[in-house]
């Protein structure tokens, strides 16, 4: 499965991945025109400083056993069995914030403009390379083929594929 791997030691903290994400999910799709002041919402990824003040780029893991999917009361969140991606159907979302409460990594948030539904990384829906990966000048976030062996947690044994309820 294709996943975004993170190499924080390469991150320059330029936030270009965030600009790229914002652009990808803005009406024009263009980095020139994306509203960085918030008019097009917030990026779905983030770059945060760790306790040593070094930048760490963070994006959704599309977990093996996604807690957001488990917590979702409407079926808006699901794990696509074919791609392994955790998908969010805005139309079904009730904005109950069970997923925000449950993602241990803080990777799903209330959408910043309407604040009525959640938003998360959608792996740029069908784009060959996610926009953030393309935009990273240092290779701190990169695409890799992985064979998931563990869950997103200290799960004993092997967790089989989880599709979620929707």
């Amino acid at each position: 499965m294709l996943r975004i791997l993170i190499k924080p030691e390469l991150c320059a903290g330029c936030k270009n991945c965030q600009v790229a994400c914002l652009a990808e999910h803005s009406p024009s799709g263009s980095v020139w025109l994306a509203d960085l002041s918030g008019g097009h919402g917030r990026p779905r990824n983030s770059v945060e400083l760790n306790s040593r003040d070094l930048p760490v780029p963070l994006t959704c893991r599309h977990c093996q056993e996604p807690e957001c999917v488990t917590a979702c009361i409407t079926g808006a969140l699901s794990k696509n069995p074919a791609t392994g991606l955790v998908e969010h159907d805005q139309g079904r979302c009730a904005g109950c914030w069970m997923c925000v409460m449950s993602c241990p990594f803080g990777m799903i948030s209330p959408e910043a403009l309407e604040k009525k539904t959640a938003v998360k990384c959608d792996f740029c829906q069908g784009r060959e390379t996610p926009r953030c990966v393309e935009a990273c000048p240092t290779g701190a976030i990169c695409l890799a083929e992985v064979s998931p062996e563990t869950g997103n947690n200290t799960t004993p044994g092997e967790a089989p594929k989880e599709e979620g309820l929707h």
Binding site: R3, I4, L5, I6, P8, E48, L49, N50, S51, P55, V56, L58, R61, C63, Q64, P104, F105, G106, M107, A144, V146, S147, P148, E149, T150, G151, N152
Partner: peptide
């Protein structure tokens, strides 16, 4: 999560 960052080989 940046403060606790720990990534397994498969990206989780």
């Amino acid at each position: 999560y940046a403060d606790f960052f720990n990534q397994l080989e498969d990206g989780s």
